[in-house]
Simulated assay, not measured.
Amino acid sequence: MLTLTHLAKTYPNGTQALGGINLTVAAGEIVAVIGGSGCGKSTMLRLIAGLDHPTAGSVKVDDLVIDQPHPAVGVVFQEPRLLPWLSIADNIGFGITDLPRAEREQRVSRALTRIGLADYGRHWPRELSGGQAQRVAIARALVAQPKVLLLDEPFSALDAFTRLSLQDALLSLWAAQKPTLVLVTHDVQEAVALADRIIVMQPHPGRIFLDIPVDLPRPRDRLSDDFFRRERQVLRALDGSLTVDSDPAKADADNGQTNAAAMWW
């Protein structure tokens, strides 16, 4: 279980990035975080990863306080960040070199198969497409079997077709281990397609505006009426999150208002 308790961050210049976040994410749950510019999404992810220190509050994975990078928390960034001098197999196994060789090779082989690159172990990063490279980055993070995996807009640089394919690949990898996933995204459809819950953030300072459950069965039909209804619900919440002193209950109501939805990003 991932627990954020009164998590706040104020930078030395006085900018209050996070104004106190309370959030609990169950083991194996997928949570998407979405919101306008300046709402603290990336700051929150850095604090959960232990890459930065909060001004107040805490991050815990089960009973473990996260105040520095820890094997319990993996991170996938926007760019694959593969090491060009290592083969694909060695890139995936880079973080588990402490394991016995046989177990390491077994995990890497299994990961390559799950991402559809079973024959690419001896290839080099330069030989991969952008989508293939990001598959390797996700496999590298999951092969260490973290309890929590953070994804910072991992598909934002990819074309729409590749993005859809990678969303399905991510769910396939997740299903094998069921780690807790926290995904930061600007893509409403992606959030609805992947998440069990969508956290809509409000800026200045960053805080939770609305927590939206997504109770659609998997695999999700992106063309279904239920899927479109969830997308509209998130867009209304985003619209409301940009209004000063807005009421989350009103944003969640089915009033058909999306005046600012096109500006949230």
Rank of each mutant, 00 (worst) to 15 (best):
H53Y: 13
P100D: 09
K250W: 09
H6N: 12
L170W: 03
V33L: 12
Q106H: 10
W85P: 09
R101F: 00
G28H: 05
G50W: 10
R140N: 09
L128V: 09
R236P: 01
V75R: 02
A137C: 04
P71T: 02
G130R: 03
L242K: 03
D215Y: 01
T5W: 07
L112K: 03
A118S: 14
S165C: 12
A193I: 05
H6P: 05
A160P: 05
P203G: 00
Q106F: 01
W264L: 14
D252S: 14
S246A: 15
T3K: 15
V192C: 09
L117S: 12
V65N: 05
R114Q: 15
A89P: 03
V234D: 07
A72T: 06
P219Q: 01
A27K: 12
R126E: 11
L150F: 10
F94I: 00
L128D: 01
A133D: 06
R207F: 13
T162Q: 07
D211Y: 02
P213D: 04
L117R: 06
W265M: 08
T113V: 05
L149I: 14
R101D: 10
E127C: 03
E127G: 13
L223V: 06
L99W: 11
P219G: 02
K41W: 03
S246C: 06
R104M: 09
V65S: 09
S156P: 00
L45H: 05
G256Y: 01
G50H: 14
L112Y: 00
A160Q: 11
A141G: 04
E29M: 04
V108W: 00
S42F: 14
G40R: 15
A249N: 15
A193M: 11
L18A: 04
Q78M: 01
L86I: 08
L128F: 11
V76A: 04
N255A: 12
L18M: 11
T3L: 13
I30G: 02
W85E: 05
S172G: 15
T258I: 14
T24K: 15
P179Y: 10
L82E: 06
V214T: 03
A26D: 12
S37I: 06
P125V: 00
L216G: 04
L128Q: 07
V148N: 03
A133W: 07
F227H: 08
A49D: 02
K9N: 07
L4Y: 11
L51P: 02
L4D: 01
T97V: 07
Q78I: 00
H204I: 00
L142T: 02
